[in-house]
Amino acid sequence: MIRVVLADDQGLVRSAFAMLVRSAPDMEVVGEAADGAEAVRLARSSQADVVVMDIRMPGVDGIAATATIAADEDLAGVRVLILTTFESDQNVVAALRAGASGFLVKDTKPANLLAAIRTVAGGEALLSPGATQALIERVLHQPDPAAPAPAGLTMLTDREREVLTLIGRGLNNGELAERLVISPLTAKTYVSRLLTKLAARDRAQLVIAAYESGLVRAANQ
């Protein structure tokens, strides 16, 4: 059973999401939060698997709450799924940098939201279809000089850099295996090594690292 915390400052939105989650036989709502501080508290007390987090909330917002969860070793198994109104919201990038496992827009189809919760609960990253490129074009069009390069970047082999570049371009493990003419297991091993070397929580942070390091550039550059 996937244990879900819902964090949104709008009660009607939380109620709608709660009804949807409770309709899934493999999920249960273990807490509802109106702000980020409460979301963090509930993530701890309820032993949640996934926190569905709104970005804009009073007090502690979703980005700060995500960073707190990601930095807490006791919450290492908790995954954050960001919900936002706009796919091109640059705050989504900040949330991914902070440790979110992915994001969806709020008007996504109910079945897609449930599938997204299952995806991040299983340890995978989830980026809203079509939204990644929009974010790249608007926010990640060039490396941020204020953002330090990932600490482990210099430790990567040429092959690992190649894999990171392809991950940044959106390839999944099967596509990596096909492009590099390796087995799916080997592709998965490369991804695991990158997660370890770059101290990344999941694939979403690898995508961010690929762009911020300059290994991948937006299509218009």
Rank of each mutant, 00 (worst) to 15 (best):
D8A: 11
Q10S: 15
L12T: 14
M19N: 11
M19E: 14
L20F: 04
L20E: 11
R22W: 08
S23E: 12
S23N: 13
V29P: 04
A33C: 14
E38H: 02
E38Y: 01
R41F: 06
R41I: 06
R44Y: 12
S46G: 10
S46F: 07
D49H: 09
D54F: 12
M57D: 08
A64C: 08
I69C: 08
A71E: 14
D72A: 12
E73T: 11
V78R: 03
V78D: 01
R79K: 11
V80E: 02
L83E: 06
T84K: 02
E87F: 04
Q90E: 14
N91V: 08
V92E: 00
L96N: 00
S101V: 02
G102Q: 03
F103L: 00
L104K: 00
V105F: 04
K106I: 03
T108E: 09
T108Y: 04
K109P: 05
L113N: 03
L113A: 04
L114I: 08
A115Q: 13
T119Q: 05
A125H: 01
G130Q: 09
G130N: 07
A131M: 00
Q133A: 15
L135R: 00
I136R: 05
V139R: 02
H141D: 15
Q142L: 10
Q142T: 10
Q142W: 13
A146T: 14
A147C: 11
P148H: 12
P148G: 08
P150Y: 03
M155G: 12
L156G: 10
R159M: 11
E160S: 09
E162D: 15
T165F: 08
L166P: 00
L166Y: 02
I167A: 05
G170A: 02
G170I: 00
L176C: 01
L176Q: 03
L180R: 05
P184G: 07
L185S: 13
T186V: 12
T186L: 06
T196L: 15
K197L: 15
A199N: 15
D202C: 13
Q205R: 03
Q205L: 02
Q205I: 05
V207Y: 04
I208T: 07
Y211V: 00
E212K: 15
E212P: 09
G214Q: 07
L215D: 11
L215N: 11
V216D: 00
V216E: 03
Q221S: 13
